[in-house]
Design a protein around this nucleic acid. Structure first.
Lengths: 221, 221
DNA sequence: CGTCTTCTGGAATGATCGTTCCAGACACAA
DNA sequence: TTGTGTCTGGAACGATCATTCCAGAAGACG
């Protein structure tokens, strides 16, 4: 039986020289596909284009990934891993408590500027493939769930430091709002590059959240 | 010579019965193409799919529109026209000055819920087709320019009513921020429908802008 | 009536799509 | 050495792609 390398993770098995070469090919395919899909969407990216950019024949793509759909899932999974790995650990920030949120948002903004491909891919996939049964949408949701949880924790800490009370529902809404703003700022920058000041928009967000929390709490009372 | 109906506007010429039938076909094609492109993106929408949904043969599509690209441009143009026409005229709102902005945002939110197809198409096209020379991107920018101008006027009026000073640059940033939030809320609703409370997020935005304006002005001083 | 314009129907084009097949190249274990 | 699993190269498949062509239906106009 052949070795089904079509699975997502290479596992922890010892790798022969030949297999390591295959791993490199797999990576080149992932990178090429990630770039292309982020540029032109899923439907707009052909296997032959991935083949051309990666320098590997179509048969290699199909040996490493089950299908075009499987390739997409792997690209999303891999992209998320890399993107989050590039963010600094929020627990290690040495800023005073009332500035941690702002600092974290700055880091997110920088990541958006430095490595926009992944978020672009995520948004494109979310909008382009609303098939109920698409497994990739599930991956997208999971990735966004992580991001939302991180934002929520940062917001909670910030509000606590400022002695602003906030119940769970309010925190949830604020985290969703912040994630939405991150999407939005990114999109604005995509549509009108050079005309969009990403840090400025993130500063607006940071300046804004405490007041929003107070307003929400007041409304709830 | 044949009559080149491939142009966007039917003009003001008197229409014969045969021509009116053609106009109906044109509309059916535009509607079908708009739906499909909003669902699956430009690359994901085939002429044969448009033909199937509209009930007209491919040759009719090519008679009414120069090419697939031309069809896209017409769809965007037409969609923008319809979408803005569905919004109430801000000058006619009868709310007190300090609530006009909130009311306007509510209307925008409702429009997003009622007729999401157009914004979905706009975002999809913006992200999917980053070709420098794409004429459709120009249309997208123009449409967003209108929206931004409307938001800016509403924000300016709101701040004046609240006696919060704001210079041009601040107003511009706030308008961009608000437009971005509108995008974002829409996207969040697309990705996690039923899990996203659109009015709540728009209330956060409305509650947020005066504080943001004050913060921005303070920073600039 | 016949001619013109407008629009539709359907077949056809070559290109490209996703996917498969299979012969080999190459590193390992025996 | 002789397999055996791992991966690549390239040709090939039918399906579908955007687009074109042309015959003809049918109202308009004389």
């Amino acid at each position: 039986m052949s070795a089904e390398p079509v699975t997502g993770d290479p596992g922890a098995a010892p790798r022969t020289e030949r297999q390591q070469l295959g791993d490199q090919s797999r990576r080149r395919i992932l990178d090429a596909a990630g770039q292309l899909m982020a540029e032109r969407g899923y439907a707009g990216t052909s296997i032959s284009a991935v083949s051309a950019r990666s320098g590997l024949p179509a048969s290699s793509i199909y040996w490493h990934f089950r299908s075009k759909e499987g390739l997409l899932a792997a690209v999303i999974e891999d992209g998320a891993l890399q993107w989050f790995a590039g963010l600094p650990n929020p627990a290690e920030l040495d800023a005073p408590p009332t500035e941690r949120l702002a600092q974290m948002l700055v880091h997110v903004g920088e990541a958006l500027e430095d490595r926009p491909e992944f978020l672009r891919l995520l948004l494109l996939i979310s909008l382009e493939r609303p098939d109920e049964s698409a497994a990739s949408l599930e991956t997208v949701r999971r990735v966004r769930g992580y991001a939302r949880a991180g934002l929520r924790a940062a917001i909670e800490a910030e509000l606590a430091a400022r002695r602003i009370p906030a119940d769970d529902a309010t925190l949830d809404t604020l985290a969703r709002f912040s994630l939405a703003v991150a999407d939005a700022v990114f999109i604005a920058a995509e549509i009108e590059p050079g005309d969009t000041d990403i840090p400025a928009l993130f500063r607006v967000l940071a300046a804004t959240l405490p007041a929003a929390a107070e307003a929400a709490t007041r409304r709830r009372a």
